[in-house]
């Protein structure tokens, strides 16, 4: 290149400036729950400025639990988001939410936790749980994990007393020795372990039940803006790629993110989040969603639907094939630019 500006370069700069001025980033409203492992990619992508690279401008809203989150979708308060698989099924049944991917496999992150003095007794003899009171958050993945554990030990719902309350109340009740058994999810599990010496006596993973987290979209938004949904997925996938490749840096961001949500857990517990909760890259997502009704995701979601039928929440739960779709993952896969973006680990 000579000292004078190359005409082509100049043109390119002009074009870039023009498109930048023209292409106002489109707003996409993203919902999640604060201080959860699967919500970390949203924070990482924001810190790294990746949304803007695809012309998206995220507007976040956060909810204390999955149920109010999906209720808010009824008023079109958000477009896409991540949530637990149990709320995702409820949202599919009530408000036409589509499940377009999985956030992570959180089977190990949902568990029945016991207060310190009695934990070993329960572990040795799970039958002794019969007749006890379990506090849990109804219609949550934690509820699902607890019921799977009970089923594994051959206990029925009627064998125990279930009291439903929020996660914060459960932590209060267990730490003040007013409840011995609770259904919790991470990072609340770690809070109880670290501060109160409580122990996990059975997680979803121990029962062979897969408890996924779901990426969801409002059906009408997906119809209007399929491109944005695909871009959203690409950003999310890239954040996981990066975090798995740069764990120390990811953990620094994780600490900040959890702090923002009022949660402080140890370095070891944060490592454990990474170690015990598998995530899926683009190829992985496509693989578990492939095959429609026979796909893994459909199978897992249908098991959850069965659970919600058994609790009486959904007398007629929807079939997974009605609301689980890999259409948007395939859009990412078929667009070379998005595919490259989603698989970037830097």
């Amino acid at each position: 290149m000579n000292r004078h500006s190359h005409p082509l370069l100049l043109a390119a700069i002009f074009a870039a400036v023009a498109t930048a001025a023209q292409a106002q980033p489109t707003e996409i409203r993203v919902s999640y729950q604060p201080a959860l492992y699967w919500a970390l990619p949203f924070y990482v992508a924001t810190e790294k400025g990746w949304w803007g690279e695809l012309g998206l401008k995220p507007a976040f809203s956060t909810f204390p639990a999955g149920v109010p989150q999906i209720a808010a979708s009824a008023s079109k308060s958000w477009d896409v988001g991540g949530t637990g698989s149990v709320p995702a099924v409820l949202g599919a049944a009530r408000y036409n939410l589509l499940t377009i991917g999985l956030t992570n496999d959180e089977s190990a992150g949902n568990a029945l936790v016991a207060a310190a003095p009695k934990a070993d007794g329960y572990t040795k003899n799970p039958q002794s749980i019969k007749g006890e009171t379990i506090v849990l958050t109804a219609n949550s993945t934690g509820d699902y994990a607890v019921q799977s554990c009970l089923a594994k030990w051959g206990l029925k719902k009627a064998d125990v007393t279930i009291k439903s309350m929020g996660q914060a109340e459960i932590i209060s009740a267990m730490s003040s020795k007013n409840a011995d058994l609770g259904g919790l999810w991470a990072p609340n599990i770690y809070t109880m372990e670290e501060k109160e010496g409580a122990k996990v006596i059975c997680s979803g993973k121990d029962t062979g039940t897969v408890i996924p987290g779901a990426l969801v979209v409002r059906a009408d938004y997906a119809k209007e803006q399929p491109q944005n949904v695909a871009k959203f997925l690409a950003v999310y996938l890239r954040a996981w790629k990066w975090m798995n490749a740069h764990r120390p840096e990811a953990i620094v961001l994780m600490k900040k993110f959890y702090d923002l949500g009022g949660v402080s857990i140890s370095q070891a517990s944060m490592e454990k989040e990474f170690d015990t909760r598998p995530t899926f890259d683009l190829a992985g997502q496509l693989k578990i969603m492939k095959g429609g009704e026979t796909s893994d995701v459909d199978k897992w979601m249908n098991q959850i639907a069965e659970f919600m039928k058994s609790t009486g929440t959904l007398p007629e739960p929807p079939q997974a094939s009605r609301y689980v779709t890999d259409e948007y993952m395939r859009m990412v896969d078929s667009d070379p630019k998005l595919k490259e973006f989603a698989n970037r680990s830097n």
Partner: peptide, 16 residues
């Protein structure tokens, strides 16, 4: 869930 004094109570409770 992201701000407000009620949120402080819940988060304080959750972190024992």
């Amino acid at each position: 869930a992201s701000s407000g004094i009620g949120y402080v109570l819940v988060k304080g409770q959750a972190s024992i």
